[in-house]
Structures are given as structure tokens and as C-alpha cells.
Design a protein around this nucleic acid. Structure first.
Lengths: 192, 192
DNA sequence: AGATACATGTAAAATGTTACATGATTTT
DNA sequence: AAAATCATGTAACATTTTACATGTATCT
């Protein structure tokens, strides 16, 4: 009997990398930086993880590397999609996306606050709120910068814009939720 | 040189289980069912994972098992927090929660839609929207059932209520985002 | 008779995180 | 002279997912 050559895989980081490389060819290092911003807003990856997956994807011939040497710089390998990679990316877009399972340690902590230090949890909520205010400001600046006129968006720009809109909505929701909790937990009475 | 006895661990599922057992003692099987609903709305875990972590937590003496035999049923082990477990849970509530990193395959797919089948992605958006409509309805029913009068909530009920509110806000946001995308992608024109 | 609920696990594979490792160049 | 940026990886460990494994009791 033959072994099945193409094992089922999580198909997660692979596809995020395919999308990123489809937008623009890049080295592992470049990708690592992209996963710290833009794409990284909704999919995080460290450079170690990226190099490993990149090697696997090169083995599967989804991508191909071109060595690039610039004087006064370490040599780098710039990856680009192969026809196989482009086909895989196209195939993946036709697949129904599994429903997202949210996994929130913060929510677990809220739920457990009566079994510990309630005051500390309230402080933590206020802290989380601040982080999300920061992120919202960052996203909105990004949105204004890249899409100054959202009514005049072309087909090419629409996807990135819509994803950013999702980020903005998510952050706003987080902030509103924190506010609701802080009010319910009597934070207002203490600070005013 | 001595080895550090208490290795740093993800401290993720452990604490979700501590919270759940603090609310009410349970067997692995009971916990698996809770992680399919209530607690599972914001933290998923399979029974295999739960049994493994439960064994580890018992080894660390965070929890202790009592065998319970009911006639006509397989024997089960009911776990309860030990004083050590209760202390660990309390300690954890004082820790600042790491900022959540959202990881959304759906967002990656939106971003990549120009490199594949745009129509299929639009169908996928509509499908995701439906799922979130279902979840929202489920959460709202749950909320009405358990907290018919949110203005008269006691301290004991507040955490579970606030977490549910987070779930409701999250689902509503998802739906609104899907609507924004469907409109932007010209879905309305096609269907009316 | 077959499906579902109850009940608990082991094993293998995939994925992700943290620590370690190296070395050149540019900025402070 | 030290720190940060550029550039690529290996190794160890932890976590998560999927498949396998077993057996009773109840419901349809």
C-alpha cells in the first residue's frame, strides 16, 4: 500500500505567508517584520517559525528563493510564489473558512475574579482598555494614511481596507466592553 | 547546580480549569462538556487535552480527585480545588493579562481574496455571518435565561454576566463587519 | 440493532514558543 | 564602545489536534 504523500496540515501560517508573498516577494526577515505589523495585526508569527515554514514551503515548491546580495548587507533569500503556490493560494480562497473559536485568557480571568483579587482584576481591565485605545489609534492612523478616501477604493485596495476596518471594529468593541465592565464594577464611583 | 523545579508553563488551560472547578467540582467528562458551552465560548478544549492537564494538575496538587460511583454508570473521578489550587487561582487573578493577539484565518482570507476566487470569498463571508447570527441568538437567549434582570445583579453573578456581554458584543461586531464587507463587495446589487 | 450519552484514557503528529547561536553593519 | 538593525537559522520544549482504544448503559 502506498503512503499518502500530501498529509493534511493546519494550513494556517502557510497561507498567511502565501498571501503576503503574493502581495510582494520578500525574505524571511522581511516577512518577520510584516508579521509584526500589517498582516501581523491578525496573524502573529516569530522569525523562527517563519524560517521553518518557509523551508517546508520551498520543499513543497509553493515558493522559490532567489539569493540577493547587496554590498554592505548580509546576503538574503528573496522568496516568490511558484505557479504551484499561486494555484494553492487560489484553491484555498474557495474553501469555506472554519468558524473562529475565540480564546481569551482575559475573559477567563474576568469570570474567575470572585476567586481572587477583584481590585487587581479591575486594574487589569483598565490596563487592557488602554492597550486597545492605543491599537485603535494606530489602526485609524494607518487607515487614514493608506485609504484617505474610502469611497473611492479600487478593487485592488478593498481587501486590505476591509481587514483594517475589521481591526478597527474589534478594538472599538473591546474598549466599549471594558467601559461596560468598569462601570458595572463600580470603578466610576471610586475615581470621581 | 540545581534544576529549577517549577518550569514556566503556558498557564492557559490550567487556569480555565481552575476557574471552572472553583465554580463547581467536576469530572474530566463534565469539564469537557462545559468546554463545549459556557466556559467554552471563550476557551475551547477537547477531552483528551483536559484529561492530560488534569493529571498534571493533580500531580502539582492544585486539585484532588474523589472517586464517585453511581449504580448503572461508569465510575468517575470528581476533581475539586485544593488549598494550593485555590491559592494559585487567587495569585493568577493579580497578574496582568498578556494583551490578546487576534489570529483570524478569515481575515487572512479576506486579504488574499484578489489572488483567488472573489465570488467564493463573498459566499464565505455570508456563511460566516450566518454562524455569528446563530451564536448571537444563542448568547442572547442564555443571557435572558440566566440574567433576566441585569440591573439587579449581585456580586456573585456579575462576572459570568460580563463575560456573556463580551460574547454578545463580539458576535454583533462580527455581523456588522460582515455586512460592511458584503455591501462594499457589491453583494447587495446582485441579490436585489 | 444501532445510535447516542457516559466515562477515561494513550499515541502520534502538527504547531507554536523560548532559548540558543552567529556574524556583519549602522547608529548613538 | 555599546546598542540596534539586518539576516538566518537550530534545538528544546510546550501545546494542540487528530486518531486510536475501550467499555457500559440508555434511548429510538
Amino acid at each position: 500500500m502506498h503512503l499518502v504523500a500530501c498529509m493534511m496540515r493546519g494550513m494556517a501560517l502557510e497561507h498567511a505567508i502565501l498571501v503576503s508573498l503574493a502581495e510582494k516577494s520578500a525574505s524571511g526577515y522581511d516577512l518577520a517584520r510584516r508579521f509584526d505589523k500589517s498582516i501581523g495585526f491578525f496573524w502573529k508569527a516569530t522569525h523562527q517559525q517563519i524560517y521553518k515554514v518557509l523551508a517546508r514551503m520551498e520543499g513543497d515548491e509553493w515558493i522559490a528563493a532567489t539569493p540577493v546580495e547587496e554590498p554592505g548587507r548580509p546576503a538574503k533569500k528573496v522568496y516568490a510564489l511558484t505557479p504551484t503556490g499561486r494555484a494553492e493560494l487560489a484553491r484555498w480562497t474557495t474553501e469555506p473558512t472554519p468558524i473562529e473559536t475565540l480564546r481569551s485568557e482575559f475573559a477567563v480571568k474576568i469570570r474567575g475574579m470572585n476567586f481572587g483579587d477583584r481590585g487587581a482584576v479591575v486594574v487589569d481591565i483598565a490596563r487592557q482598555r488602554e492597550r486597545h485605545v492605543d491599537r485603535l489609534a494606530y489602526y485609524e492612523a494607518d487607515c487614514t494614511k493608506h485609504f484617505p478616501d474610502p469611497t473611492a477604493l479600487g478593487d485592488a485596495d478593498l481587501p486590505a481596507y476591509l481587514v483594517l476596518r475589521g481591526g478597527i471594529r474589534t478594538e472599538q468593541t473591546y474598549i466599549d466592553w471594558c467601559d461596560e465592565m468598569l462601570t458595572a464594577l463600580g470603578h466610576e464611583k471610586e475615581t470621581r
